[in-house]
C-alpha cells in the first residue's frame, strides 16, 4: 500500500493489488473449514440468539462437574460421581449438543447453497466431509471430554496428596480420553450423516434426537426377542448409540451396564464401523451432489 506521509496524516492508495503470497494446501483448507464451522456452530461472530442454546448446554454439563468437585472438597470421603456415572449422566446432553451442532455444520451450507462455492475451490468433496467431521468431533470433545478431564483434575487436586493421586489416576485419565474421543467422533459422524440429507436444520435436529431415542427402544426390543440366541444377539447393542456408548464406558471403567456385558473390543469395533459407514455414506452423497 503506497503511502505519502506529510505533516497532517497519510494518504493511502487502496487500488487493487494482485496477490503474490503463499497458497496453502489441502490440510490448511480442511483446518480452516473445520475452525470456521466450529465457530459458527456455537454462535461465535453471530448474533446472541445463536449463542444461547450452546451456552445453556455448556452450563448444564458444568453443573454436575461443579457439584462433584464441591462435594469432594467438603466431604472427601463421599464419592458422589465416578467417571462411568458421569459419562452416563451427560449422554443426553451430548446427544442434544450433537443434534444442535451437526445440522449447523452441514444443513446450513445446503440451506445457504454454499456447496457450489466450496466445490469450485481447491478443497475437494472428500476433504469437505473430513473437515466437517473434524469440526464436529473436536467441538463435541468440549462436552464429552473436557468436563471429565476437569473432574479428574478436581479429584486429583483435592486429594490429600495431589501428585500421588494424579499419578495413580493416570489410567483413569487414559480411559476418559479414549471414551471422550470415541464418543465425540461417533456421535458426530451419526449427526452429520443425518444432517447431510436435509437443508432444514429443524428437521435434522428432530431426526437426530428421535433417532437416538427410537434406536434405543428398537435395540432393547430386538434383544428381548432374540433372548441372547443367535450369532447377531451380541451385536444388537450396536443399533443404539446410547447402548453402544454405555457398553464402551462400562467396559472401559469396569462397571456393570444394562444387565449385559459388552466386550470393550466389540464396543470400540462397533463405534469404528459406524464412523466408517457414516463417512462412506457422506463421501458417496457429496460426490454425486452437483
Amino acid at each position: 500500500m503506497g503511502a505519502a506521509q506529510g505533516d497532517y496524516g497519510e494518504i493511502f492508495d487502496r487500488g487493487y493489488r494482485h496477490y503474490a503470497g503463499p497458497r496453502l494446501g489441502q490440510a490448511h483448507a480442511i483446518w480452516a473449514l473445520a475452525r470456521y464451522s466450529m465457530a459458527r456452530a456455537v454462535g461465535i461472530r453471530r448474533p446472541w440468539t445463536a449463542k444461547i442454546i450452546p451456552a445453556l448446554l455448556y452450563g448444564a454439563v458444568a453443573i454436575p462437574v461443579a457439584v462433584a468437585i464441591g462435594i469432594r472438597a467438603f466431604v472427601p470421603a463421599f464419592a458422589f460421581l465416578d467417571y462411568a456415572s458421569f459419562f452416563g449422566a451427560i449422554f443426553l446432553l451430548e446427544g442434544i449438543f450433537v443434534a444442535l451442532i451437526a445440522p449447523e455444520m452441514l444443513s446450513s451450507d445446503r440451506h445457504d447453497r454454499l456447496l457450489p462455492l466450496y466445490f469450485s475451490r481447491p478443497i475437494g468433496r472428500t476433504a469437505y466431509v473430513v473437515a466437517k467431521l473434524l469440526g464436529t468431533g473436536l467441538l463435541t470433545l468440549s462436552i464429552s471430554l473436557l468436563p471429565a478431564v476437569v473432574l479428574w483434575l478436581g479429584n486429583g487436586l483435592l486429594a490429600r496428596e495431589p501428585i500421588t493421586a494424579m499419578r495413580e489416576g493416570l489410567d483413569d485419565l487414559g480411559r476418559i480420553i479414549v471414551a471422550g474421543v470415541l464418543i465425540a467422533f461417533y456421535l458426530g459422524a451419526i449427526g452429520l450423516t443425518i444432517s447431510a440429507f436435509t437443508s432444514r436444520r429443524s428437521v435434522a435436529v428432530g431426526v437426530i434426537v428421535l433417532g437416538f431415542v427410537l434406536t434405543e427402544s428398537l435395540s432393547f426390543a430386538i434383544s428381548r426377542a432374540l433372548d441372547g440366541q443367535g450369532p447377531l444377539a451380541p451385536w444388537v447393542f450396536a443399533i443404539s448409540p446410547s447402548r453402544t456408548i454405555a457398553g464402551l464406558v462400562d467396559s472401559l471403567f469396569g462397571v456393570p451396564g444394562f444387565g449385559e456385558h459388552v466386550p470393550l473390543t466389540s464396543a470400540i469395533g462397533a463405534i469404528v464401523v459406524v464412523i466408517a459407514i457414516c463417512l462412506a455414506i457422506m463421501f458417496a452423497w457429496y460426490q454425486r451432489h452437483d
Binding site: 503463499p22 497458497r23 496453502l24 490448511h28 461472530r45 453471530r46 445457504d112 457450489p116 475451490r121
Partner: peptide, 23 residues
C-alpha cells in the same frame, strides 16, 4: 443466492479466501 446469510461480509469473504488456500 449463495451466501452465508448469518455471517458478516468480511467474515464470509475471508473464509472463502482461506478455502482457496490463502493464509
Amino acid at each position: 443466492e449463495t451466501l452465508a446469510e448469518g455471517a458478516t461480509a468480511a467474515d464470509f469473504v475471508a473464509h472463502m479466501a482461506e478455502m482457496s488456500g490463502l493464509p
